[in-house]
Every structure is written in structure tokens, then in C-alpha cells.
Design a protein around this nucleic acid. Structure first.
Lengths: 138, 138
DNA sequence: TATTGTTATACTCTATAACTATA
DNA sequence: TATAGTTATAGAGTATAACAATA
């Protein structure tokens, strides 16, 4: 069954693209001294505040895992823990000014790192790709 | 420093797609009792044998990391370590029959898991996407 | 001397299970 | 009782540095 049909090849290409992208993002995060998961958390918290549990659900992780992640990121000054106004059991996680600066630098590095990959496409094909990705993601 | 909105959105979409894909692959791997990195190793070794160092370079990891990864996968019966014919210092890593069966199941699960994402596109757009990904990856 | 791989060590990520404080 | 979060514990992934064997 070494017959790759069209669907298999598309899946392989998607996998390859994703591994390459994650590799680039991992390096970028490491350069800023954070993990890939912390990069995700920073990106998410740029425009909202979330409770520990919601953040965990968002990332598909256990709450106990988030406790540690937030603790380490807070120790680095990137995040801050705040009491939730409506539920005394809950903890809101908020990005700090330092965290926001790091998040912005990460965003810039991401664009820079992925540019060579998208640069192989001419502008028309780039728009095409963007439209296709949007269609898949929504 | 390019602050082109179109480029930023494309990078964001690429990141999002990759995180989703990696999430799906992580679950698939976990269902087979292997890590995401072990899934990659199995996929790579399906059609070749590589030395520890080459495998590490291929994945962008340290050799010491590969030593552990291969040890754990070998303990599970998925890989086997063999002396290299040309260099007595080197160790070839080979996929076992069990490893090959697992690799095939992983491949099938990947296609299944990613199908819903690509299924939102009609066949013509799917071909388009495939062509664009291939252009980016080569 | 340089390279291949291993070992020792340390840290992060992750999950499970038991626990607390609050709802 | 149920839920939000923490703590304790354990295993995997990862890197760095020091090391042995071979080139």
C-alpha cells in the first residue's frame, strides 16, 4: 500500500509545513527565553484576560499544567496573576508590560522567520494561500 | 522591519494552522503511546536507516537528546540500534516490523484527523492548496 | 586532534491523583 | 456536592558539559 493518492500527499505536505513552522517558532521562542507553549500563551493574552482553567482549555492542557506554566512565566515577569472579580476560587492571568513587549518582539520574529517560506510565492499566490488557509481555519 | 498587514495575517494563519495540526498529531501519537518527536522519527525511518547524529541533525536536536529518544523507542520495540558498517563509532537506527506497523497506523490516523480540515475545501481548492504547499516546501 | 555517541545533570512540559477553598 | 486551582509525583523531552572510543 505504497500508493499515495492526492489526499495522502496533501496531508503529508500539511504535516511537513507544520513541523517546519513549529521548528521555526520553537527557535524564536528559545531566543526570547520562553517555551513554545509560553509563546502561545503570550499571543493569546495580548488581547484578553483569561482564567487559569479557560487558558488550559484553550490550549488543550490540564489545569495543573497551566498552574506551572503561569508560575514560571510570572517569575520571568511576563504574566501576572489576579483575583477574579466574580469567583473567589478563580485566578485571572494578565499579560504584563514586559510580557507585551516580548509578545511584540515574538510577533516580529515570526514574520521574519516565516517570510522566506512565503517569499517563494508571488503576491498573487500568497493571496491565494491566505484565502485558502482562512477558509480552512474558519 | 516589514509592517505589512497582509503579510502579518498570512503569518498568523500559518501559525494557527500549524498549532492546530500539531495538536491533532500530538493526540494521534499519544493514542499510539508515542510522543510527537517519536512520530516524526518513525515517519523518517520508514524508508531509510540513519545514524544517531544524522537523525539528530534532521530533527534539529542534540545528539544526546537522540540517544534518549532512541533508547525509549527501542525499549518499546519500535526501533533497533545496529552497528554502522563503515564507522565503528557510529550507531545506525532502524525501524522494526512493529515500528513499521505503528508508523502505518499513525499515517492512517493523520489522514483521518486532518481530513475534516481539508474537507472544508472543494476538490479544486484542495488541489490549489496542495500546489501552493509544494511550492513553499521545495 | 576531531568526531560519534553516551552519561550526568538540570530544567521544562505534561498528566494523574489527592488536596483546599469556594460555590 | 461540584468546581477552580494547587501540590506532589512521575515520566518524557530537551540542552550543556564532561567523557570514552574511534577516526
Amino acid at each position: 500500500m505504497d500508493h499515495d493518492d492526492e489526499a495522502d500527499q496533501l496531508v503529508d505536505a500539511l504535516g511537513e509545513l507544520s513541523f517546519r513552522t513549529m521548528g521555526a517558532l520553537t527557535e524564536i521562542a528559545a531566543d526570547e527565553g520562553v517555551s513554545l507553549t509560553q509563546l502561545r500563551v503570550l499571543a493569546i493574552l495580548r488581547d484578553r484576560r483569561l482564567r487559569i482553567g479557560d487558558l488550559a482549555q484553550y490550549l488543550g492542557l490540564e489545569r495543573s499544567t497551566m498552574t506551572g506554566l503561569v508560575a514560571r512565566a510570572s517569575a520571568k515577569g511576563l504574566l501576572s496573576r489576579q483575583p477574579n472579580a466574580d469567583d473567589a476560587r478563580a485566578v485571572d492571568v494578565v499579560i504584563t508590560d514586559t510580557g507585551m513587549r516580548v509578545a511584540r518582539r515574538l510577533g516580529a520574529s515570526m514574520r521574519e522567520a516565516l517570510a522566506p517560506m512565503t517569499a517563494t510565492l508571488d503576491p498573487a499566490r500568497r493571496s491565494q494561500l491566505h484565502a485558502l488557509l482562512d477558509a480552512m481555519l474558519h
